[in-house]
Each structure stands twice: as structure tokens, then as C-alpha cells.
Amino acid sequence: MTDLVDRLRALDTCAVSDALDRHGIRGVVGGLRPWAAPGTIAGRAVTVLLGPPSDDVTASRHLGTAAVDASGPGDVIVVAHQGRTDCAGWGGLLSRAAAARGIEGIVVHGAARDLVEAAEAGLPVHAVTPTPVTARSRAVERGWGEPVQLDDVAVRPGDLVLADGGGVVVVPAAQAEEVLATAERIAGTEAAMARAIAAGAPVSDVMGQSYEELTSRDH
């Protein structure tokens, strides 16, 4: 798995997205962007499921803390916050703890807060938007280390997660080898095209039929 993470880190989200298209996998999480420390996030998913408070859920500890305590280098915390922007699904003390444990970064499908603290700790955080509004009394943890949904993208513990300036993608662990191999071929092909353009080739020739077929499932 470490080898797969290293290979993932060497790619960008656009190449991986193209590979996911070619394999017919929904793996692009829309609407997220980097808000804290710069840098690529690459690693294995450790999932956290949030939801509104209810009589059947008692917040005996703050959301995300168990996942942080169980994670470390090579792990990415993925918070399923249902895209909520009315309160944070992640905060500053969690960011400091995650950074101290060497966690690669955080992906929040919703708002996050204390992003200055995350930046000071050197922890990359991708989220929908910043907010100062606390989760306390507004959201609770309903589980962690279990499959979650980020809109139409399923994320299971151990899936590969890549986040950079281009967005966030999730690669199912069961198909990681084939998707990464395809992404590497696509990246290599596009690098050769970039060299041809730099050498003076007309872009209309470089980006011809073969470029259009890069994501085709028939090629």
C-alpha cells in the first residue's frame, strides 16, 4: 500500500480523474478547495461520519478525535459532513493534533474552521468553505472507520485519496493498481505532448484524435 501511495503522490488529480473516467468510476469530489497549508495530500482514507444531534447519539467526545488518535503518516482524514456550511466539521485543535501525529491532510465535505491554526501547523485542509461556527450543539460524530458518501462518491476506509490545487479524487482500494497504472500512462502521454508543444509543434496536431481518446474506455 505504501508503494501505491507513493505512486499516487507523484500524480495530479487531473490525471487520476481521467483514469477514473476511463475505468468508469465515480471518484471526483466536487466543490472542495484547499484552505490551509499548501501542498498535495495523498494517502489512505480514515473516514468520519457526522450528522445532526439527536436523542440516539450522545457526544461523549468531540467529533474526529478517535480517528485522529488512530491515524498517522500515510493517512488522510475524510469527514463526511453532508456538504454543510452552517457549522464546521473540523477545527483548530483537531488540526494541531493531526499535524502532531503526521497525518497527511484533511478532506471535509462541508465547512471547516480555525484554518489559520491548520496553516500554522502545516496541515493541508480541503473543505467547501471556511466558517467560524462551531459544531458543538450542531453536529456530532455518528461513526468513524466505516464507509461514507461524499455526494455521489463512496469512500471506504483504506481507499486512496489525492487532493491538490485541482481538486479531490478518491480511488477505490480494490481498483487502485489498475487506476494508477492508467493515470501514469495518461500523465506520460501528456508530458510528451507538452514537450512537443514546447518544441514548436502546432497544438492542433498535438491535441488530435489520440488526445480525445485518452479517457475512452475503448482505448
Results as ranks from 00 to 15, higher is better:
14 C>S: 14
14 C>K: 14
16 V>R: 03
16 V>M: 06
19 A>T: 11
19 A>M: 12
20 L>N: 05
21 D>K: 13
21 D>V: 13
23 H>G: 07
24 G>M: 07
25 I>T: 15
26 R>E: 15
27 G>C: 11
28 V>N: 06
28 V>R: 15
28 V>L: 13
30 G>K: 14
31 G>M: 01
32 L>N: 05
32 L>S: 08
32 L>K: 06
32 L>E: 07
32 L>Y: 10
36 A>D: 09
36 A>Q: 07
37 A>C: 03
38 P>L: 04
39 G>R: 02
39 G>S: 05
39 G>D: 02
39 G>E: 02
40 T>M: 02
40 T>V: 15
41 I>F: 01
42 A>Y: 08
43 G>E: 05
44 R>S: 14
44 R>Q: 13
45 A>F: 11
45 A>P: 07
46 V>H: 10
47 T>M: 11
48 V>S: 04
49 L>R: 13
49 L>E: 08
50 L>W: 00
50 L>Q: 00
51 G>P: 08
52 P>T: 01
52 P>G: 05
53 P>R: 00
53 P>W: 03
54 S>Y: 01
54 S>F: 00
55 D>I: 06
55 D>Q: 09
55 D>H: 13
57 V>P: 01
58 T>W: 13
59 A>S: 15
60 S>C: 10
60 S>H: 12
61 R>D: 09
61 R>N: 05
61 R>M: 07
